[in-house]
């Protein structure tokens, strides 16, 4: 199991949610995981129902079986100051730079630099060891930028190593790429069973592969329950309306004769079944597109009542059951 698990996907498909569930799932059995947020949105804090996270690793959840989940929201400006501090012992000069807007400038105008800092910080956590020489975190899970940007994001260190041909940033960039392009890393993509997210997933995987980044698994999120299967839908089409009317009537829903309460339910119920069948067909198509990607597929149910902490643990259990952790 790779120690750096990167979670991407189309916007709104559930990257943050799946990353958090995965961090919980990986923490079971006494393991320790770090959940890293790079998009400056405080999505993790929202999900775990805690106050905004500072730029600091802190424990946010305990997993079943005693494991722990830590979280870190990386602030690129502070990360840059960290770096300057690390390499140049800037002291007060760092503050002066910040005041001038230099930090803002450097992290904004050079989006590459920003990404270097973010990926660098995550890789540092992956490699960090304690005094006894054991890894501090068993796993690091990253809530990464969306599919359209993730390859560039992860690959930025290659670019930067090319731009800054010498110096500490160059060395750092190369060290990060060594982690990201190794089996130590796995990039997972979250999708829905809809045309656009599936298309984006397929495109994203092709890009990641072209950049030789290690693609992990596909997580289909918010899967609606299957109420009727294809054979049943077919059978419903071949069954006379009157039979349904009688059955509804037998179930206690009123009269089966024309105009009776039960009889009047038949058409709308059949229409709903038709809509369901159409959606079922589309989902089926999307599933087979996903199937052709040649990656392990996982499915998480749509939590009908919306997301909360209990729901998050439920998704974690599901991921574990499906062998994703």
């Amino acid at each position: 199991m790779s120690r750096l698990q990167v979670v991407s996907g189309k916007g709104g498909t559930g990257k943050t949610t799946v990353a958090a569930a995965l961090a919980l799932a990986l923490a079971t059995e006494g393991k320790r995981t770090l959940l890293v947020e790079v998009e400056d949105r405080q999505g993790i804090a929202q999900l775990f129902e805690t106050e905004a996270l500072p730029y600091e690793e802190r424990k946010i959840a305990v997993a079943p079986g005693g494991g722990e989940v830590f979280a870190l929201a990386i602030d690129p400006e502070l990360a840059l100051l960290d770096y300057l501090q690390m390499f140049y012992k800037l002291g007060g000069a760092g503050r002066a730079l910040k005041k001038l807007g230099a930090i803002d400038f450097a992290t904004t105008i050079a989006p590459g630099l920003r990404d270097v800092l973010l990926t660098g910080k995550a890789c540092e956590a992956v490699r960090r060891k304690d005094k006894a020489g054991r890894f501090v975190y068993d796993y690091v899970v990253m809530d990464a930028p969306p599919t359209g940007r993730v390859t560039r994001f992860l690959n930025v260190n290659d670019e930067v190593a090319g731009l800054a041909k010498i110096g500490p940033i160059h060395n750092q960039a190369q060290a990060v790429m060594r982690v990201l392009k190794s089996p130590e890393t796995a990039v997972h993509l979250v999708t829905l069973l809809e045309e656009m997210p599936v298309q984006e997933t397929a495109d994203g995987i092709a890009e990641l592969r072209a950049a030789r980044l290690p693609v992990g698994r596909v997580v289909v999120n918010m899967v609606r329950p299957q109420v009727l299967d294809a054979a049943e839908l077919e059978q419903i089409r071949g069954t006379p309306r009157t039979a349904f009317a009688r059955s509804l009537s037998a179930a206690g829903l009123g009269g089966a004769r024309r105009g009776g309460h039960a009889e009047r339910l038949v058409d709308p119920l059949l229409r709903q079944a038709e809509e369901y069948a159409e959606r079922y067909e589309l989902e089926h198509e999307q599933r087979s597109v996903l199937g052709e990607l040649g990656l392990p597929l996982h499915e998480l149910p749509l939590l009908a009542e919306g997301m909360d902490l209990a729901g998050l643990y439920e998704l974690a259990t599901e991921l574990r059951k499906q062998g994703m952790s």
Partner: peptide
Amino acid sequence: PAERSVDELTAGLLRLHAER
């Protein structure tokens, strides 16, 4: 792959409706 009875199919329609 047994065929469903009408009652089973109707129950399915009703569950679908409940979800909706």
